[in-house]
């Protein structure tokens, strides 16, 4: 069992190895309050012999995707992480969920929202090494009642080239094992720093929203209210399920938070650009 921000998980497995890896990487995280979890994740063998023969980890739990392909046991840690994300994406109703990484400074939150590969995790992890508090690399949890963004600082999922970038920038940090050849390429998890874990119950006021794109030459573009609204509905896993609360939460974000779309060609200039926009706009 463990708690990440406001969400408690129980993770069960037919094998010891994924639980061992999780227990090690999440060893500094608290237990769910009163031992009551929000979601169960279960990693299991779809057929009994798959526990032993070419072991394949099927991701299950309270909520399942019926056609999800199992992962090899060597990627059991990834399966556990995906299992936690899946429960959140399918069943989180307390918060509006946005696919975004979030970092915080002085009680104010910077949200980086984009598709996979846009650099959400990499930028957030690098900002963490530069004195920002990491609040999460995957989901921003926006409270419909207050408009505050809550932290969900699970392991940071670094993919392909960003693994080396962060090994260079955060040499002292703890990394999980290299998971080679996953559906998203080579993945290595980075443990959020002590500040991120210690302060994970402290929400932040959303102060700047950026839509990053990795690759093109550096550019900054204003984003209109209509584009922001539509992008955020697409970035949310539970906008429709939240109904009127989702609409009101997006209304507040669109009306209150400055927004820019940014292109960056390398991580150094990306970080410099983000910090410049923060000084100018937040």
């Amino acid at each position: 069992m463990l708690r990440i921000g406001p969400v408690g998980f129980r993770i069960g497995s037919d094998w010891r190895a994924p639980i061992g890896a999780l227990g090690d990487l999440y060893r500094d995280y608290p237990l769910p309050e009163d031992g009551i979890v929000d979601f169960n994740v279960r990693l299991f063998a779809a057929r009994p012999w798959r526990r032993f023969v070419r072991p394949a980890v099927t991701i299950g739990g309270d909520y399942m995707l019926p056609d999800a392909l199992p992962l090899p046991l060597a990627q059991g840690l990834l399966a556990a992480e995906m299992g936690m994300n899946l429960q959140m994406a399918l069943a989180q109703r307390r918060y509006l969920l946005l696919h975004a990484s979030v970092v915080e400074r002085d009680g104010r939150g910077l949200l980086l929202s984009g598709v996979s590969g846009a650099g959400k995790s990499t930028l957030a992890a690098l900002l963490m090494t530069r004195g920002w508090r990491l609040m999460g690399d995957e989901f921003a949890l926006v409270d419909p009642a207050t408009g505050l963004v809550h932290a969900f600082p699970r392991l940071i999922s670094l993919k392909n080239q960003s693994v080396a970038v962060l090994q260079c920038a955060a040499g002292q940090a703890r990394f999980g094992p290299l998971l080679a050849g996953t559906p998203k390429g080579d993945i290595r998890h980075l443990v959020p720093d002590a500040t991120a874990i210690a302060a994970m119950d402290r929400p932040a006021v959303p102060a700047l929203l950026l839509f990053p794109t990795f690759g093109p030459a550096e550019a900054v573009r204003a984003v209109g209210a209509a584009e922001t609204f539509v992008r955020l509905t697409q970035a949310s896993t539970n906008y429709v399920a939240l109904g009127e609360r989702g609409f009101a939460t997006l209304r507040r974000l669109v009306q209150d938070v400055p927004v820019r779309a940014i292109d960056y060609a390398d991580t150094d200039s990306g970080i410099a650009l983000v910090e410049r926009l923060w000084r100018e706009l937040a």
Binding site: A226, T228, F229, F247, R251, V254
Partner: peptide, 13 residues
């Protein structure tokens, strides 16, 4: 209905 102006568009819940 709830109306949110998104100049030039409008979101209607």
């Amino acid at each position: 209905v709830l109306i949110l102006s998104l100049d030039p568009l409008t979101a209607i819940y």
